[in-house]
Amino acid sequence: MNAIEIKGLVKKYDEKFQLGKLDLTVPKGVIVGLIGENGAGKTTLLKAILNIIQTDEGTIKINGRDNHEEKTKENIGVVLDNMFFPELLTAKDIELAMRGIAKNWDTELYYNYLKEFSLPLDKPLKALSKGMRKKLEIATALSHHPDILILDEATSGLDPIIRNEILDIFLNFIQDENHTIILSTHITSDLEHVADKIVFIDQGKIVLDKDRDELIDHYGILKCDPDKMDQVKKEDYVCYKKNKYDVEFLVADREKIRKKYRDFIVDKMTLEELMLLMIKGVK
């Protein structure tokens, strides 16, 4: 059974923006990274999965059940961007409330996380730094033993050290092969470390859905002078982008292209370069 299965999902907002139609399957035991520009539809997709917004078409299944079934929510831990308990409350207050909200709430586990993350018990949320708040949100999400974690921009605005700590928490969580994580971010370097699968959303549509290893090991960038760009055949690249002094082609099979175009440079590519090329590039 897949952790999440989305079929034919459509969410219409207005003439300018529509999410979908899209299909997405997330198997158990993986970390899926959602990337895309601001406003591309990442948060909308996550909100649709969580049933925060209503969808117009399509079905979303979580652990094989329709996402409207309340029971599905018992298995999901959520960290959203700027949506959490009112900031007058303290970590202790949140524990008292969650005890009466989540069925599988584990007080001991929660307090262990607080200790591990060095979070204060009696300070209101508004007195915590951004990093501490995020860690508290993650601790809350993890303390009712979910098997799916859904995180929207959980690492954005945080320094590299805290980001690294948080990514370690995720890697720890995913040790259990029944556990799954979907995280959206525009800090693509984070995903290069942890994600198994990369899903790229642009203007409400999934434009790329691939294993990270395939992207990192096989995709590449071919660079050449603008006056030589005609030599690169159309079937050999995904898209290209003209810069001031060179042209960059995104290629799907780096080694093959390297052998074919021996005069040009063919390099490995980062997810950030991939994102830039796919959004700014021409097909």
């Binding site: 909100k47 969580l50 309340e70 959520v78 700027n82 949506m83 308990f85």
Partner: peptide, 21 residues
């Protein structure tokens, strides 16, 4: 005032993701 605090931190968006939210 609890409604104001809720609105300010978008608590309801979070609360609907909880069981029977």
């Amino acid at each position: 005032s609890t409604f104001s605090y809720d609105d300010y931190n978008k608590w309801n968006s979070y609360a609907v993701t909880l069981p029977n939210g």
